[in-house]
Design a protein around this nucleic acid. Structure first.
Lengths: 228, 228
DNA sequence: ATAATAGTGTCTTTTAGACAGTATTCA
DNA sequence: TGAATACTGTCTAAAAGACACTATTAT
């Protein structure tokens, strides 16, 4: 209440961290990188970095960090939450504005950065700072939003069949879905269009139609009135 | 890529802002205060302030700022989003971790801080910094969460009747609700308990039963599988 | 008694899910 | 032709909504 000097106010460390998520073999994976500086040098952690004065905002910083450290331009990046406190970083009172990004596994494999390590979010992760909390928050957010939005489509890649997309939703939601209802919902969302040319490579059975997001939905979520 | 000096990295201004929302006469209101310092001295703005080194985290700072500036201990405070950039504050590159709080109108009127100005969020607001964006984001979040959660209960106060609570939901959702369905949902949520003693003061008609949140739901949201 | 709002029972409509049928491919 | 998966039609079950009826109060 009485006159604070504000002496330490300016010394807060401001960073961004990115939780890059993808789906590999029906498992939700997070992308980690070995840190090339202290603290925690050579330890696997989320891609992150300081905000620069040249960044237009924190989102811009997150896109820059992701591009610089993994080579990836993500089609979907959303602010997750901000994590803060005096103890989360040994360098001092810090703030991390965390974002999460969703890409298909192809995007990571074609990124040309072979040092990106993918770890399943369902197995124990030992991460520095409070990165475990950040990852858990991102996974919870993704799983929650999968209930009533088109978010999982960003994990499915450019082209996908309806059975493949249903599998993505099932992995994220952790339950099997009714095929007829799932297709009714996709029709209701009206965001997919068939790609001419079926998906034949799967074997001795009827091939499935390939779909893609309609252009107007490439970078914009669709929400459902009622879930699933 | 090549060696950055990081010269300006530490000069980011770190603040918290609180969007305190309440319901008055069927209108959603935001609490504003006249700023007592430059920039924008004497202009109505969101309660906010610097993060202090003594704060345990940004949430703690938000609770402190709200208590100091309005005298209010809020039962519900949630992180909204973080707003950042070089231009939002004339003092320089800044980060504001924004929170939103929900209280009943009684809490504000009994706070003993008569300088709290309540403005309808539906009428044009001319606010400094990017506070208009922050308020709009908070209102959108509240309205969205009202579709499928118990969030509106925090605006209804300690005790309320079901017709009153339904009215709160209707104001937030911007549509009238089916009485039978609304009551079915409240029963399904199983978070209310009747208070012995009916609500008589309303006039020449049957009094309504007063309810309160069950203790275990006082500070914890309930989510619905399907909305409304 | 009347007016006004609270609260409930029940029927109709809408939405979700089960299930089984047809379709198409490869071996 | 059989096995495998894609896709669809249709019936059943569950949820939401409409509507009307009863309940309780003050005047």
């Amino acid at each position: 209440m009485a006159g604070r000097t504000g002496a330490k106010v300016d010394q807060i460390i401001c960073t961004v961290d990115v939780v890059l998520l993808t789906l590999k073999e029906d498992q939700l994976m997070v992308a980690l990188l070995k840190r090339n500086r202290e603290p925690y040098k050579n330890v696997l952690a989320l891609p992150g970095g300081y905000i620069h004065a040249e960044d237009m905002d924190a989102r811009d910083a997150a896109l820059r960090v992701l591009k610089d450290k993994t080579g990836i331009d993500t089609p979907y990046l959303e602010q997750l939450a901000t994590f803060s406190g005096p103890a989360r970083d040994p360098r001092g009172w810090s703030v991390s504005i965390a974002y999460y990004a969703l890409v298909s596994i192809d995007v990571i494999e074609k990124s040309g950065h072979p040092d990106v390590a993918l770890k399943s979010v369902d197995q124990p992760l030992n991460l520095p700072f409070d990165h475990k909390t950040i990852v858990d928050t991102a996974v919870a957010r993704l799983r929650s939003k999968s209930q009533y939005s088109s978010l999982p489509c960003y994990l499915a890649g450019e082209n996908f069949t309806l059975p493949q997309l249903q599998r993505v939703y099932e992995v994220l939601m952790g339950e099997s879905l009714n095929k007829v209802s799932f297709r009714r919902k996709m029709t209701e969302m009206d965001m997919l269009e068939p790609v001419e040319g079926a998906f034949t490579s799967t074997g001795a059975h009827r091939p499935a139609q390939l779909y893609q997001l309609k252009p107007e939905f490439r970078r914009q979520l669709t929400l459902l009135e009622r879930g699933l």
